[in-house]
Design a protein around this nucleic acid. Structure first.
Lengths: 357, 357
DNA sequence: CTGAAAGCGCTAACAG
DNA sequence: CTGTTAGCGCTTTCAG
C-alpha cells in the first residue's frame, strides 16, 4: 500500500470499526483502554498519523492565524516566538501573515484565511474597529496592543511605562519632552501620546509631538532628528526603539550629543536597544509572555471559555541605560548643534569604562 | 440563511449543477463564459467565497510550511517577508514554524504538519541530510542556506562573499584573520569557514577559527571577544552580523578599538549592522529575493515542474562601512587591550563627522 | 459543455 | 463501550 493509511486501514488491522479508531484518537477515554491499546498498536504498525487536515465535519483545523504588521520589526520577533511556543504546546499551528502596515492587505488576507483557522490573533492591527468587531463575531479573536470594547485584548501598560519614563526624565531635571510619534493608525501610538500628556500635566512639564512615523523604523526616526532639535526640548520619548535609535543616530549626526544635550527614551526594549551607542533607555514589556498569553486566551475561547471584558494589561518596567542623562545647563540652540570635541571625548571615555551590561 | 453559502447554494441560485459551480471556480475555461458569468454573479450575490479548506478530494491546501530556526533573528525577517509576499501573490498561505535551533523540534513539527501543506521551505535547517531527503520524497521541499544533493536549494554565494571580505581585508594590510564560527550544525557555517580557508590559502594569509556559537547572537559574539584578542589576529570575520556585533562590543569593552586595532566583518547586512558603532562592514545577500525565489520554486514544483539539480546561488556584495580599517602597525598584545584615551577620543570625533549613511 | 453520482477521511448521532 | 450510518463541501469520473 502506498497511500497514507487511513482510520479504515487501522480499524481493519485492529479488528474494530473506523469510528472507534476515530474516537480513540479524537477523544481519549471514550474507548476501553484495552481496545485503545490495540488500535494504537495497529496504527503504529501501519504508520498511521492523525491528519492535521480538518475533517470537513469538525471544523477543528487546530490552526490559528497570527497577523502582524511587519515581520521585519524585531518587536514582533519575541511576540511571535511566545505565541508560537504556546501554540505548539497546545497543539495548534500558526498561520502567519504580515501586512506591511497596510490595513487593506490585512482585511483581504484575513478574510481569505478566516475559514481555515479556529481563531485569530491580531497584533497591532491597523484595521478599523468595526472591521475587527465584525470579524470577532465570526471567530474568536484576540487583539494585541489595541483596545476595543467587546474584543478581548492584551495591552502593555503604556500609561505606566510612559509615566515611569517621564518621572525618570524629571528626576534628571528635564522639563520639556518631545514625543516622536509612530503610525497614525496605531492604537498604541495614541495611547502613548495620551499617557504622555497626562503625565506631563501631573508632573508639570511641557510636551510636544512630532511625527507621525507611519513606518516606525530607524530610518524614520533618523529623519526626525532635525525637528527634534528645533523643538528645543532636552528629552525625547519615541514611539518605539527603532524610532528612538533613529533619533539618536540623527542627533549624533547633527552634532547633538546624546545624552549630554538631549536624552532619548525608547519603547519595547528590543535587542536593538543594546546595540546602539549609547545604549538606549527604554520601556520593557514582556513580549514573549504577551504572545503566549494571547494564544492561551484564544485557545481558551475556542474551547468555549468566555473571555473577560477587561483587557489584560501586561506590566512594564523602565530599563535605564545610557541614552538618558542629567539635563544640561544650556539647551541646544534651535537648529544648531553645540557639540564640540571635548564633549565627545568625554562621552567616548565614558563609553570605554562602562561598556554594555 | 446564516451558514456560509456553499457551491450548492450558488448552483441553485444560478440554476446549474453544483459540479458546474465547482468547475467554474476550480478550472476556468472548462465552463461556457456565459454560464460562468451567471455563476459568479450568483456567488457574488450570496457572498460565496471559495473555501481555503482543503476539499478532502483535492489535497490542495494552498498552504506552504516555512520553517526557520529562530524568528527572533533579524536575518530571517527579510527572508520571511519575501517568502510571504511571493506566497501571497501566488495564492498561497504560510504556515510558520520556528524551531529554536533544535533539530528534534524541527523534525517533530515538520512531521506533524506535513500533511497539511503542499510544500515545505526549510530555512537553515538543522535537520540531518537524510531526514530532509526523506521528507523531500513525500512533498516538494526547497532548502535555503544548505546544499544537499537531490533537494533543490537556494544558497547565498558564501564563497564569493568571504572572498570579497578577505580581499578587502588584505587590501587594508591584514594578513591574519580569525573566523568566529556559528552553529556547528549549520551548513552555512561550514561553507563560510571552508571558503575562508581557501581564500586564505590563495591570498596567502593566516586564518584561525574560534567558536562555535551555537546560538549565533550578539551575546555569543560578545563572549568570544577575549578569545579574539588572544589570537592576535588584526581582523575577524564572523559567522553573521549578530556575532560580529557582539565581537565589536566585546572588543570595545576590553579596550580594543575597532577598527583601529582589529577590523571586524559581519555577514548578512541585517538592519543591526547600521546601528552598531562603528557601523559594520558586512556581506550583503538579497534576503527578500531569496525568500521570494524559494517560494516561487516551491510552487512551481507543486505545479509539477522539475526543479533544477543545481542549486540557485544568490549574488552577494560587500558593504564596506567603518568596522574595517587599515591594519595598525602593532598588533594588539595578547590578552591585553591597548586602548587609551587619545585613541578613543579620535574615534569618537570621527564618529561625529561621518555619521551613518 | 454540463449533470448525476460517487466518494475523499473523518466525526457524530443513534442504536445497540 | 462500540458498530452503523449518514453526511461535511468539494472534485471528479462518467455519461450525456
Amino acid at each position: 500500500m502506498d497511500r497514507r493509511p487511513t482510520i479504515y486501514d487501522v480499524a481493519q488491522a485492529a479488528g474494530v470499526a473506523a469510528s472507534t479508531v476515530s474516537r480513540a484518537f479524537a477523544r481519549p477515554g471514550r474507548v476501553k483502554a484495552e481496545t485503545a491499546r490495540r488500535i494504537f498498536e495497529a496504527a503504529e504498525a501501519l504508520g498511521y498519523r492523525t491528519t492535521a487536515l480538518p475533517g470537513l465535519v469538525s471544523r477543528r483545523t487546530r490552526t490559528l492565524a497570527l497577523v502582524v504588521t511587519d515581520i521585519t520589526n524585531p518587536f514582533y520577533g519575541d511576540i511571535i516566538r511566545g505565541a508560537h511556543e504556546a501554540a505548539h504546546e497546545l497543539g495548534y499551528t500558526l498561520l502567519l501573515s504580515h501586512t506591511q502596515e497596510d490595513a487593506q492587505l490585512e482585511r483581504d488576507w484575513t478574510e481569505r484565511e478566516l475559514t481555515a483557522v479556529e481563531g485569530v490573533l491580531l497584533t497591532s492591527s491597523r484595521m478599523s474597529d468595526s472591521a475587527i468587531r465584525m470579524m470577532a463575531k465570526q471567530k474568536p479573536v484576540v487583539v494585541l496592543n489595541r483596545r476595543l470594547p467587546e474584543v478581548p485584548s492584551i495591552l502593555v501598560d503604556n500609561a505606566r511605562g510612559i509615566r515611569r519614563a517621564v518621572e525618570h526624565l524629571t528626576e534628571l531635571g528635564h522639563d520639556a519632552v518631545t514625543y516622536v510619534a509612530g503610525p497614525e493608525s496605531s492604537w498604541t501610538d495614541g495611547a502613548r501620546w495620551l499617557a504622555l500628556r497626562e503625565a506631563a500635566h501631573e508632573l508639570d512639564i511641557r510636551v510636544r509631538r512630532i511625527g507621525p512615523c507611519n513606518n516606525p523604523t530607524v530610518h524614520a526616526g533618523f529623519g526626525r532628528a532635525r525637528e527634534v532639535v528645533t523643538t528645543s526640548s532636552t528629552a525625547v520619548i519615541a514611539y518605539n526603539d527603532a524610532v528612538a535609535i533613529g533619533v539618536v543616530k540623527g542627533l549624533t549626526r547633527l552634532g547633538v550629543p546624546v545624552p549630554e544635550a538631549v536624552s532619548v527614551v525608547g519603547f519595547d526594549n528590543t535587542l536593538l536597544s543594546e546595540i546602539i551607542e549609547p545604549e538606549l533607555t527604554t520601556v520593557a514589556a514582556p513580549l514573549q509572555a504577551m504572545g503566549a498569553t494571547a494564544v492561551k486566551n484564544l485557545v481558551a475561547m475556542i474551547g468555549g471559555a468566555v473571555p473577560s471584558r477587561e483587557p489584560i494589561i501586561m506590566p512594564v518596567r523602565l530599563v535605564v541605560r545610557r541614552s538618558t542623562g542629567q539635563r544640561s545647563r544650556n539647551r541646544v540652540s534651535p537648529a544648531l548643534g553645540t557639540r564640540n570635541v571635548s564633549s565627545s571625548a568625554s562621552a567616548a571615555a565614558r563609553s570605554t569604562e562602562s561598556g554594555s551590561r
